[in-house]
């Protein structure tokens, strides 16, 4: 969920949304804005691993659980806006698209980008999660302990 509309909290919200987005869907939505803006790389897309940590007993001290693939990049648009991305998986185009949206969200086209890209991605993720939660809720059970007929 993207909470807030401005500032760092909002930016964290859309960066996470872009990181989790399906790459093809993000590209499709970005295409609706017309031609991609020209950009220069500050850091070309790079595939790497992030060590994911858990906590002992769920709430205790951290331990290393295993890695996940993440692709990162940074770019600057001709207007000077800088966009960063850390996205899930090995998609360099995904990272580029995410950084581009991040940069655009800081420029004059922010509200247009929000309506065309962020809004739909948010709604679709929400719908996916709702559908899964409803499916989970259908499998909710009540167990009864049987009284043994001994008397």
């Amino acid at each position: 969920m993207v909470d807030g509309t401005t500032g760092i909290e909002a930016r964290k919200g859309w960066m996470g949304l872009l990181a989790r987005a399906r790459p093809a869907r993000l590209a499709e939505l970005l295409d609706t804005l017309g031609e991609r803006p020209a950009h220069a790389w500050l850091r070309a897309p790079e595939v790497g691993g992030v060590m994911v940590r858990g906590r002992m007993g769920g709430t205790g001290a951290p331990f290393n659980l295993g890695e996940m693939t993440v692709t990162r990049c940074s770019l600057r648009l001709d207007g000077g806006e800088v966009g960063h991305a850390h996205v899930q998986g090995r998609g360099k185009a995904h990272a580029r698209d995410a950084a581009m949206v991040d940069a655009l969200m800081q420029g004059s086209r922010a509200s247009q980008v929000r309506a065309a890209v962020i809004g739909p991605l948010e709604a679709e993720e929400d719908a996916r999660r709702q559908a899964r939660a409803a499916r989970a809720a259908s499998t909710k059970v009540d167990f009864f302990t049987m009284v043994r007929g001994e008397d």
Binding site: E46, V47, G48, G49, V50, M51, V52, R53, G54, R55, G58, T59, P62, N64, L65, E67, T69, V70, R72, H86, R129, R132, A133, R135, A136, T139
Partner: peptide, 23 residues
């Protein structure tokens, strides 16, 4: 394959209390 990946960092410990549970 994993050994060829540069390590970009370590995550904050995940919050399994906030898990979206399938089960």
């Amino acid at each position: 394959y994993r050994t060829t990946l540069p390590r970009l960092g370590a995550s904050r410990p995940v919050d399994t209390g906030a898990m979206r549970c399938d089960r």
